[in-house]
């Protein structure tokens, strides 16, 4: 963990669309990527985060501040994470998981992937293909055969909400 200092240090983060953000070092080092930069002494000026856009970075910083304000209480941290992610749509969550992965923030990464899984749970195969941008590489015959084999897993699927 960071050494105790008298005055809180502030870092400046730059998104890939050139937005600048100030954040307390104590909150920013939740990101192992940023922590390593700080420890290597590369955090003196502006820290460029080439894989994160401004909108997502703003959201991640809100999370960093929110979660680091909570004392070591796993229950409270969990309920903060749940609330933080509760109103986010799939696209935002997808950007967030990519950012969490790049910033190496395992707690956010874990929570966001769990949330994405929760959103996907009852979705149709078509919905998943569209959201993940996946091309169906099965022939119609192959797809029908795989589907037939596991027919029961298609029961209770929600109607698509993205059309």
């Amino acid at each position: 963990m960071a050494a105790e200092t008298g005055t809180p240090t502030t870092l400046t983060l730059k998104s890939n669309d050139d937005e600048l953000f100030s954040v307390a070092e104590s909150a920013a080092i939740l990101s192992v990527t940023i922590r390593n930069m700080v420890e290597d002494g590369c955090a003196g000026g502006v820290i460029p985060l080439d894989n994160v856009d401004g909108k997502t970075l703003a959201s991640v910083i809100t999370y960093m501040n929110g979660i680091s304000a909570i004392p070591a209480d796993e229950e409270k941290k969990k309920s903060y994470r749940d609330k933080f992610l509760s109103d986010k749509d799939f696209e935002t969550l997808a950007d967030m998981v990519l950012a969490a992965n790049y910033l190496n923030m395992s707690c956010l990464m874990d929570a966001v992937s769990a949330k994405i899984a929760q959103v996907m749970e009852k979705k149709s195969v078509g919905w998943v293909r569209r959201k993940f941008g996946i091309e169906n590489d099965y022939t119609p015959e192959e797809e029908a055969a795989v589907k037939e084999e596991h027919k029961w897993t298609f029961e209770g699927v929600e109607t698509d909400d993205d059309n």
Partner: peptide, 28 residues
């Protein structure tokens, strides 16, 4: 998926219940 690395896809899939996972074997 172009920018969604395979290990992230796998990390998300790991959190799904088995019924969804079996359905999603038909995704690709």
């Amino acid at each position: 998926s172009d920018y969604f690395p395979a290990e992230l896809q796998s990390a998300i899939l790991q959190k799904l219940p088995v019924k969804s996972l079996i359905r999603f074997t038909t995704v690709c």
